[in-house]
Design a protein around this nucleic acid. Structure first.
Length: 207
DNA sequence: AACATGATCAACT
DNA sequence: GTTGATCATGTTT
């Protein structure tokens, strides 16, 4: 599929998401997140993502076991899980692995490819590079809300396309903004990209 | 009380 | 340009 003269590949198949969250987070870098809206399609290349594991990961929303809030995380991989944080922001996750596991990948930053005019309405006055920088900002640009919980990628208005092969361009670090299980290196990102969140000194920025 | 954040502002290099 | 402090805000435990 082609969007604004950019080839973003085909939609990934359903079984793509049936892998552990750590592997899925790495695999999602370079993929294109897209959404069909009444005003047209929005699309952006995933540049930064974090894995939240089942079992030992105390910072994962699934750690306490199944609750009303985290129920989407226990669906089969490819399910959407959106939560609200600090009363103000929303964050988007894509569930990993088989049903009942409870692992997901937080999408933290992306490079806008299409629907920039639509994103700009939702993020007035922002530079293109800042439209989808940070999980709360990305959710705002894409208008993700709890309404999107339990939707399935590629069987709804939310899509993931093959995008770009970024193997060999991906760096790993500790996750941002958590206080538990901080030793785990589960943040994956394109080093030096101007689209990633966090302080430049943590990111190997070139800019 | 804690929370997977972001905008703003003041102070610095 | 960068950094750290502060706070707005609603849901969950």
């Amino acid at each position: 599929m082609r969007l604004n003269e950019i080839e973003i590949g085909a939609a990934v198949d359903r079984c793509f998401f049936l892998m552990p969250a750590e592997k899925l987070a790495r695999s999602l870098i370079g993929k294109v997140l897209a959404r069909q809206t009444p005003f047209g399609i929005i699309a952006a290349e995933i540049i930064e993502a974090e894995a939240y594991l089942d079992g030992i990961d105390e910072s994962s929303h699934s750690f306490p076991g199944l609750t009303a809030r985290n129920a989407p995380m226990f669906e089969e991989g490819g399910c959407i899980y959106v939560y609200q944080i600090y009363g103000v922001h929303h964050c988007v996750n894509i569930v990993a692995d088989a049903a009942g596991i409870g692992a997901a990948v937080l999408i933290r930053a992306a490079r806008p490819i299409a629907g920039i005019d639509i994103m700009s309405v939702r993020r007035p006055g922002k530079e293109i590079r800042d439209l989808c920088k940070g999980p709360g900002n990305l959710a705002k640009a894409f208008s993700f809300t709890k309404e999107d919980n339990f939707k399935r990628v590629n069987s709804s208005d939310i899509l993931i396309h093959e995008g770009f092969d970024r193997r060999g361009m991906i760096s790993v670090s500790e996750r941002i903004g958590i206080t538990k299980s901080t030793d785990l290196k589960l943040r994956f990102f394109m080093a030096g990209s101007k689209y990633i969140s966090g302080r430049p000194s943590l990111n190997g920025h070139i800019q």
